[in-house]
């Protein structure tokens, strides 16, 4: 074996099993008599944040982390996390990415009319075109096919074992002792499927693209929206103020509702619908509502 260490970067989202994958890989390397270092950041992992784990193995390992552009394998359990870490992948390296998209809440906070989720729109075809060895695998689909979406990480692990060119027998016992006893069988099946997926040598091209969202139209500021408030009908019950999702309404000194933060109003009409006295109407200017 060469003196150069092998670098595997494993990335994903909290709860996907990044740590399990890296733990199994680390133990397999240990069992093969290699020096190995595995380091991870998991302080906030439980809370849905990004998780990553560096695994380096070989004859002698110094740095616990992988330098930019030096990962031999980038293993992404989630599509956008793979994109995030692409700069760490060596130009000659291999990308194995689950095409599963976990769109975070933070990508869904833009309330402007026609807003799109803040999630990378890059398609697998486009991505793999620029990479030496790329595999976009629908690991979550395969796992669901096996009846347990949670073993998607083991599908990817199986793929990794094939890419590293290591015999399956080295991995299965390690895998078995790192998963709950009840799930050993399905994990073995998942591992075999992931391995077979690589070994059947599909053209390094993607499985079906995830469905792209159709644009709704240009993102338009809400300057066309106007709240028409019939002051004499408002009895200051506060329902609209409390229920407004954007908190842009307030009661004024006369206990009558007013639009206190016009810039925040998205024209969602919750106030119009909830007002027991029909005191509020949303006038959207020229913008046509769409179903």
């Amino acid at each position: 074996m060469s003196d150069r260490p092998t670098n595997v970067l494993i990335v994903g989202v909290g709860g996907q099993g990044v740590i399990l994958v890296s733990k199994v890989l680390t133990e397999v390397c240990q069992a093969r008599g290699l020096a190995v270092k595995q380091s991870e950041v998991h302080g906030m992992a439980k809370r849905g944040g990004a998780v990553f784990s560096h695994v380096r193995f070989g004859r002698e390992i110094w740095s616990p982390t992988i330098a930019q552009g030096e990962a031999d394998v980038l293993l992404a359990l989630e599509w956008a996390e793979g994109l995030r870490w692409l700069g760490h992948l060596s130009r000659a390296g291999t990308l194995i990415a689950d095409t599963r998209r976990i769109v975070p809440l933070a990508a869904c906070l833009d309330r402007s009319w026609g807003a799109q989720p803040a999630y990378p729109r890059r398609s697998p075809e486009d991505l793999l075109a620029g990479i030496a060895n790329g595999f976009a695998i629908d690991a979550t689909g395969i796992a669901m096919d096996l009846g347990n979406a949670r073993v998607a990480n083991t599908v990817v692990l199986g793929a990794l074992s094939a890419v590293l060119g290591q015999p399956a027998e080295d991995w299965q016992p390690v895998l078995a002792r790192n998963v709950p006893p009840k799930t050993v069988e399905v994990n073995h099946a998942a591992f075999a499927r992931g391995r077979a997926w690589i070994e059947s040598r599909p053209e390094p091209r993607p499985a079906a693209s995830p469905p792209a969202r159709q644009p709704v139209g240009a993102t338009a500021p809400m300057n066309g929206v106007r709240l028409v408030i019939t002051e004499s009908w408002c009895k200051g019950c506060d329902i609209c103020v409390k229920m407004c999702p954007e908190r842009c309404l307030a009661l004024n000194g006369a206990q009558v509702v007013e639009l206190s933060d016009a810039g925040a109003c998205t024209g969602c009409r919750v106030c119009e619908w909830l007002c027991p006295d029909f005191a509020i109407t949303v006038d959207r200017g020229g913008q046509e509502p769409r179903a």
Partner: peptide, 18 residues
Amino acid sequence: AKPEPLPGTEVVRPPVLC
């Protein structure tokens, strides 16, 4: 003397309450 890294894409994924 490294080749230009592959272009990554930033993803907003802050930690959140469960």
